[in-house]
Each structure stands twice: as C-alpha cells, then as structure tokens.
Design a protein around this nucleic acid. Structure first.
Lengths: 225, 225
DNA sequence: CAGCGTTAAAGTCATTTTGACATTAACTGC
DNA sequence: GCAGTTAATGTCAAAATGACTTTAACGCTG
C-alpha cells in the first residue's frame, strides 16, 4: 500500500477576548463531518494534489475550508508513524500560518468553521493529535528570535506600540511594562516611527510605527509565484 | 504514481581541526556511487521502510551507511516539491543528529564515508539540495534557546568548562571570554560541578561538570523503544 | 627543587541593560 | 475647563555584561 500525503495547518491570529478584554491568540477550526472523531474540532487541511508543492497544498486547503489568505506560512513538522491510519500509511505535513486582523475578517460564514483560543482553558479538545501540533506551533512561535517579524505578520504594516505590545503579551503569555517595552523597541532598528497617528480613539492618539524587515524568515514558504 | 518516502540526516559532531587548532563542527558524508550527482558527497539517508516510523528510518539509514549511533535525533524539514524527481514524487524528511566525541570514533572505515567541516571554506560541495539542509540544521542549532542541552549531546555526561566553551564557540562561530563564560554558566542551574578533575594534562587540572537536564527537547525523537 | 610557562579559577570595575515606578503630554466627554 | 484615560518620556537602583587583572595549580626545564 503506497503512502498518502496530507497537510494540516495551524492558523493563528490575534483577537480581543470578548469576555476578559485582553488580546489573545485565536485559531479557526473545522468540525469533522465524518468518522473518526466525527463532530470534534480539527485543524483545516486535506490531501496534497499530485502537481502542487506541500506549501501550496497547505495554502489551498486552508483557503478552501476557511476562506482565509494568510500573510505568512511556515512548515512545522511531519507526522508519519506507520500505524497512524488503519488502512494505508498517512504522512501529514503540519504548517502554521499567521493572519492580520484585516485578514481574519474574511473567514467564511459556515457553522462548521469557528474561532477558538489557541491555548488556555477555553481552547477546545481537538481531533487526532492536533492538540500536539497546536502546542508545537505555539512553542516555535515563542522561541523565535525575531519577534518583530511575527508581530508584523499579525498586525499588518502600520501599528501602534500598544498593539505591538499586546501581540508580544499574547505570544509570551505574560504582561509587559509599557514604558520598558517602548524603550527596548526604540533601541532595536526593527521598527520605524511614521508621522501618522491613530485617530478616533477616546484619548491621546498614539503614533503609528512601521516594521523594517531584515528579509524573510528562512523558514517562510515562498508563495510569490 | 504514488509518492516515495525517504530520509536524509545531517550528523554533527565536534572535532579539533588538525590544521588550525580550534574545535569545529564536522559531519560525516557519503559519496554517491550512482547518478545523479555520482561521485559527489551527500548526506546519509535512504528510503523509509513500510513498518518503521520516520525517526526510526533516519536512525537506521545513518547507522547502516556510517556505523554511527547518535545520542540525539531531531526532525528538521520535509521537502516534497512535485518535480524533485523525474520519475515519481519523492518526499524527503530531513533530520539532524548530534554525536559525542566517543561516538564519533565508531565511524565505519570505508573510502566512501568521510568527515568534513559543516560550514566554512573547507566544507565541500554537496549533492542535491543538501547544502541547504545543512545550513538549515546549523541555523536551528544556533537559534536554540537551550544551548546546555546541545553541548551535553556533543560532549557526553562529564566535561570541563573549557570544552563546553569550545562547543559554544563552534556552534556560534565566534570566540567567548573564558572568565565571563564561566560566570554566566555558574549562574544558570543547567550544569553542576562534580568533585572530579580531568587528569593527564600539562597544566592545572580542570574540574569536571555535569549537565542537569530539564527534560528532553520537545523536538527530540523518542528512540527509547 | 626553584623558576617558568601555561591553563584554571576567581576577582575587579566601568558600562550597559533591566525592572519598577514617577512625571508630563494629549486627547475626549461632561 | 476639568476629570479621566492613554501616550510618551524621565528617573533611579539593581542586575547583567564586557574587558581585564590576580591568584592557584599543575608539568617541564635546568
């Protein structure tokens, strides 16, 4: 029996928790409509087509099931134990993707697709070994040396320092001192102040900053073609 | 045409450079005896058996070609572009392994297996996209948060602070101040002084230290079975 | 066996970075 | 115009870092 190829993708975006206020990492999940694990939430994914690359398959399957078009895609890990599937050998390549808040809005309206916190007590049970995949995605995110890159992919090209700090807090899972955070980032050369301010707020308008990229992450999937 | 599964492994160990003195990262390579890239050096690897896991396949193929039994194995990246092979689709899962100096000695005596520096001008050209795989292995090694773990896998369970510093220098590619290095490591709880000393040297005998593990790296392949 | 060369280990000190907190600035709503 | 809130800057002690010096413990040589 020849092996079958599939991809699964952890899609992460920031959302403000409607109950508790703080910004958190959320992910869209799809409800399984057949056995095994029927009715449980699972990561978006599907089989790899014969003429597409693994990264293309990840981008295509997540777009088909969720409607999303993430700005960042990175390969995570490959699962291929011989007994993962009772019939033939199933090799699954896991990816993880990052979304800006603007991109989050494009989620399809479908009762079988819903957003959930990526970790913590409100994060649901997942089908297969998908919880392990999500935890590994979070582990890699937290262990990245260049957080500026990550924050940029979650925020878009213009952002305030408060937004940037909330992303860091959501990823690291702990709160940071706003004043010290500001000082540290001003010392790095990874962000640059613009002459624009975020209007419409109720208080002093914060300045907008821009990310100065140092080239792509060596892990990023090239999807320019 | 169904996909074929294969593994390739970057095996890294420390060796003292016979010419220039310093400790460097070296890797064993195997010479290709058939087309394509016949005569060029390549990473050890081979097809995945029907009843073995991907990690088992990596451990088996590297042992068969090099005779080595590394103390550490970690999955790196999966390559699966549809046009990698002219005949059928070839999916290669790359691994990287770490060896202690004791384990390096067990290399098979075979003219088609030889050790080379893992990076720098004396590192040879490699077949296929294997240079990219090696560079990615080095990138991940350098971006690990827990260097103590890495050093432990390259040195064994007892080591002097000078040896530990040489490992850090070989991985990071720059020299470190011995006194400051000592101070930093004494503040972490990752190593512990033993009451033993390394005898036989020409100078003051250095104290031996032991690594205090914080559990395995989440990426490590479990090969206890 | 005293002195020298070499490496191990500990100590010194000025500079930089960090964490905790205070102060000033700029806006909205009443 | 004043209270309330967030943005942005400033202050300062503690901790960490980098460059360097000093002392200790060997083997080797004469």
């Amino acid at each position: 029996m020849p092996p079958a190829l599939a991809v699964s993708t952890v899609i992460l975006g920031i959302r403000t928790d409607p109950e508790h206020g703080g910004t958190r990492l959320w992910m869209p999940l799809v409800k399984r409509i057949r056995q095994p694990y029927r009715g449980q939430w699972a990561l978006p994914g599907g089989p790899v087509g014969a003429r597409e690359s693994l990264g293309e398959a990840a981008g295509r399957t997540l777009a088909e099931t969720t409607g999303l078009r993430p700005s960042y895609l990175e390969q995570l890990y490959t699962f291929g134990d011989p007994d993962r599937s009772p019939t033939q050998r199933l090799v699954t390549i896991a990816y993880f993707a990052l979304l800006t808040e603007a991109q989050v809005g494009a989620t399809v309206s479908d009762p079988n697709v819903a957003w959930y916190p990526a970790y913590g007590e409100h994060s649901p049970q997942l089908a297969f070994d998908h919880r392990k995949i999500v935890d590994y995605a979070l582990w890699r995110l937290r262990n990245k040396t260049e957080y500026g890159q990550v924050a940029h992919r979650l925020l878009g090209d213009r952002f305030t320092l408060a937004q940037l700090r909330e992303v860091y807090e959501a990823v690291l899972g702990r709160s940071l001192d706003p004043a010290n955070f500001r000082r540290q980032l001003k010392n790095t050369s990874s962000i640059e102040a613009t002459d624009e301010f975020l209007a419409g707020g109720k208080h002093r308008p914060p300045r907008l900053y821009r990310y100065i990229g140092h080239g792509p992450d060596p892990l990023e999937v090239d999807r320019t073609s």
